[in-house]
């Protein structure tokens, strides 16, 4: 897997320039994600076939001329379905993540700034749906909201709201307990000032990291839902649906199932590797423990003259 080259990178001596400016641990997954996103956007221009056109004379054909990745059990072009699938998967998951953050982090921060009671009420409400695992919650929401990409996006977003809200709350409380927040309050800074000047800049890293973790999870949940046959219309080109449909013909046409599967795993893998890199850079908890920095000890040699020259 592509985890291997990253683990071995520090040992390699060459490519030191590249490593400093764009380590493989970031570049490779970033390139894959960007490539898939671009291909999804450019889908209409990249393929000759519509993802829905059935060619009943060309069922379960292997890769070859005319159909670069072959056709499925209904004679549809797999490449075209794959690219349109990338489009819908990325759009739905990215929007779902945005909804999860708008609702989870946005409402969370609002309630936290408003005070103790707003916080209790919001989190009591969140606790009620938290008992259900995310996938099941999304499934139930789709049952109620109906299928289609709109309800699917909302269901995905809402199913991740509890996680985001809890992470936001923990980060907020960690910062709000600091003395610099008290100091700002003693200068007469109001809730908005403290939030924007002190708390947001300090929790932004945590939130960005969390978003990077949620996005691949959104993609996985989306694919699970479409694999189960809920969320999108039966012939819509989504990866999960492609895998589910082709699983009945797995012996005759393994290529039809491998194409979406490999793409899906490659995308989630790249995104989660990127997320790991982000966490390494941004997560304050890691930073505090990993980087000793001058804060940890009042570096005697450098500091002493000034310290001693105090009075």
């Amino acid at each position: 897997m592509s985890a291997r080259p990253i683990a071995m990178m520090p040992a390699g001596r060459r490519a030191s320039f590249l490593r400093r400016h764009c380590p493989a641990g970031i570049c490779l997954p970033a390139a894959i994600v960007l490539l898939l996103a671009a291909a999804g956007l450019a889908a209409p221009w990249l393929t000759a076939h519509s993802p829905l056109d059935q060619d009943l004379l060309q069922l379960n054909k292997g890769p070859g001329a005319g159909f670069p990745l072959g056709t499925d059990h209904l004679g549809r072009d797999i490449l075209s379905r794959l690219l349109y699938g990338a489009r819908s998967t990325l759009a739905v998951s990215a929007l779902g993540t945005v909804i999860a953050f708008a609702a989870g982090a946005g409402l969370g921060l609002l309630a936290l700034t408003l005070g103790h009671w707003a916080e209790r009420i919001l989190f009591a409400a969140i606790d009620l749906i938290r008992a259900l695992p995310g996938t099941l919650l999304a499934l139930l929401l789709i049952v109620g909201l109906g299928s289609g990409s709109g309800p699917l996006t909302i269901a995905l977003g809402v199913s991740f709201v509890p996680v985001v809200a809890y992470v936001t709350r923990a980060a907020y409380h960690r910062e709000a307990a600091r003395d610099y927040v008290l100091a700002a309050a003693s200068f007469g800074g109001n809730g908005l000032h403290i939030l924007s000047r002190h708390i947001l800049p300090n929790i932004a890293g945590t939130l960005i990291t969390q978003a990077a973790i949620i996005l691949p999870r959104c993609i996985v949940t989306e694919s699970v839902l479409s694999f189960l046959g809920v969320g999108s219309s039966p012939d819509a080109p989504t990866w999960g649906r492609m895998i589910a449909d082709s699983s009945r013909f797995i012996e005759r046409a393994p290529h039809a199932i491998m194409a979406p599967l490999v793409t899906l795993v490659l995308l989630t893998l790249s995104l989660s590797l990127l997320g790991n890199q982000l966490r390494r850079r941004f997560d304050p908890i890691r930073q505090e423990t990993d980087v000793p920095g001058p804060a940890a000890d009042p570096a005697p040699a450098a500091v002493r003259p000034v310290e001693a020259g105090g009075c």
Binding site: R178, D179, Y180, A295
Partner: peptide
């Protein structure tokens, strides 16, 4: 008011100058 813990009383993301500008602005 001045607090006990000098490690917590200054926002790690603000330079000394902007930390000192804050009370002046507020």
């Amino acid at each position: 008011i001045i607090f006990q813990n000098p490690y917590g009383a200054l926002n790690p993301r603000l330079t000394i100058e902007s930390a000192m500008r804050e009370p002046l602005e507020l």
